[in-house]
Design a protein around this nucleic acid. Structure first.
Length: 412
RNA sequence: CGGAGCGUGGUGUAACGGCUAACAUUCCUGUUUUGGGAACAGGCGACUCCGGGUUCGAAUCCCGGCGCUCCGACCA
């Protein structure tokens, strides 16, 4: 894309009502726009990045047998009463609304209920199992306090996967597969080193659930990290029993602040019982499906990347999720003409290039480029053209090299 | 939901209760410039969040609302 056509502009100052680093950088670079507290619109660069993150997650979900759907955000009161989660006393973050005829509706904050109900129409026999269903869907949560930029919003995209298994054993095996898939995802988006599988409260059907916690001061959870084993314990459940279960000693653990970028949960038969999701087994007996739910917030992942990987000059995107592969910067008129040829060539080959064809000075272009954080910067100027070359700079390491244009185009 | 702070051009800031609300930046015009947010000149842009009140006079003081941020509680 030609940068001259990009309607967003970078800014030197963030609005003063943004204190969190993620929102400050993402707003300054033109990725997001704040509409209300906890409600952000995605601008072209932000949407491209979000889509890349979604694609990484989708690939992993498909690899473990997930089938993608998209359920509705509008929910009828009846089904949530069945599971006992309609009452505001039980779930205090509902957004509720009404039809013209006064029928009450809710905006979904999760989808166990509607999906379980939906699956009762399709799952009858043990032969129909197991089934893994996931979606990328906008969730609404009426948070009493939105905070930390896009890290805790009231409207946000969520990837939620639900598993339907025949029994605990089958469920347990899939649960482990999801754990692996999640670790793949977080390492692929550049958060691997700082993300820890964390033991957290499991609810009534299993002792523990697992959170994926990324170390950052911007987080709101306190976890106890075992660096060597690459696991952690959420402060909420830290006690002697847990330490004993995991074979850890208290003094091996280090207290750290972290943000929960993912969470996986065994649900047992809580929802299948509520909605009578039963199947007939080999012996003709009726059994309740065993369920699990598995969430990742792509927006929170984006915010976490902004928090964790950025530097004093701006954002630093890993190649896997960057809005563009390359930032092509032309300095001067003749260089712009040559850069256009390079841009056209790369685009034909499917390389995603942001081409800074603006009539602006070098300093401004470099500053913008650093702020936006595309992994590779290609500079074309009279200086490089004198050697029939381009300059290649790595955003993360700052390493710079020159390469002949012909050679560069052959490689990309 | 409890506590604290803050609302002034698009953005960031300034202005003792007193002249035409100032500065920087962004944006527009022109000249000059062209490898790290250039320089000069000119210009556009604000009923000072909304509604009341006090006062000869309110951006400034008081009351109410709305909004935003932070701390805490909450986060199935």
């Amino acid at each position: 894309m030609k940068q001259s056509l990009l309607f967003t502009k970078t800014r030197k100052d963030a609005p003063k009502d943004e204190v969190s680093k993620n929102a400050e950088l993402l707003i300054r670079a033109g990725f997001i726009h704040k509409d209300m507290a906890g409600v952000y619109s995605l601008l072209p660069l932000g949407l491209k990045t979000m889509n890349r993150i979604v694609e990484v997650i989708r690939k992993e979900m498909n690899a473990i047998g997930g089938q993608e759907v998209e359920l509705t955000a509008l929910q009828s009161k009846e089904i949530w009463e069945k599971s006992g989660r309609w009452d505001d006393k039980t779930v205090d973050n509902w957004f509720k609304t009404k039809l013209k005829n006064d029928t009450e509706l809710g905006l979904a904050f999760t989808h166990e209920e509607p999906l379980t109900k939906l699956m009762t129409e399709y799952l009858r026999s043990f032969r129909d199992f197991p089934v893994y269903v996931y979606q990328f869907q906008t969730k609404f949560r009426n948070e009493t306090r939105a905070k930390s930029g896009i890290m805790r919003g009231r409207e946000f995209l969520m990837k939620d996967l639900y598993s339907f298994s025949r029994d605990e054993k089958e469920h347990g095996e899939f649960y482990e597969k999801v754990k692996e898939a999640y670790l793949n995802i977080f390492s692929e988006v550049g958060l691997g080193e700082k993300t820890f599988t964390t033991f957290a409260s499991g609810g009534s059907f299993s002792k523990y659930s697992h959170e994926f916690q990324t170390l950052t001061e911007a987080g709101e959870d306190m976890i106890y990290v075992h660096e060597a084993k690459k696991i952690a314990i959420n402060k909420e459940v830290l006690n002697d029993e847990v330490l004993n279960d995991l074979g850890l000693k208290r003094d091996e653990l280090v207290e750290k602040k972290a943000v929960e970028v993912g969470n996986i949960f065994s649900l047992g038969t809580r929802f299948s019982d509520a909605f009578d999701l039963k199947y007939v087994d080999e012996k003709g007996e009726k059994k309740s499906a065993v369920m699990g739910s598995y969430g990742i917030g792509p927006g929170r992942v984006m915010g976490t990347i902004a928090e964790v990987l950025s530097d004093e000059k701006g954002l630093v995107w890993p190649a896997s999720v960057a809005p563009f592969d390359m930032h092509l910067i032309a300095l001067g008129e003749s260089a712009t003409a040559k850069a256009l040829e390079i841009y056209t060539d790369l685009s034909k080959k499917g390389v995603e290039v942001l081409f800074d064809d603006r009539d602006a000075r070098a300093g401004e272009k470099f500053a913008d480029s650093d702020l936006i954080g595309i992994p590779t910067r290609i500079v074309v100027s009279d200086k490089t053209l004198a050697e029939e070359s381009v300059e290649i700079k790595d955003r993360k390491t700052g390493e710079t090299s020159m390469k002949k244009i012909s050679e560069f185009l052959n490689e990309n």
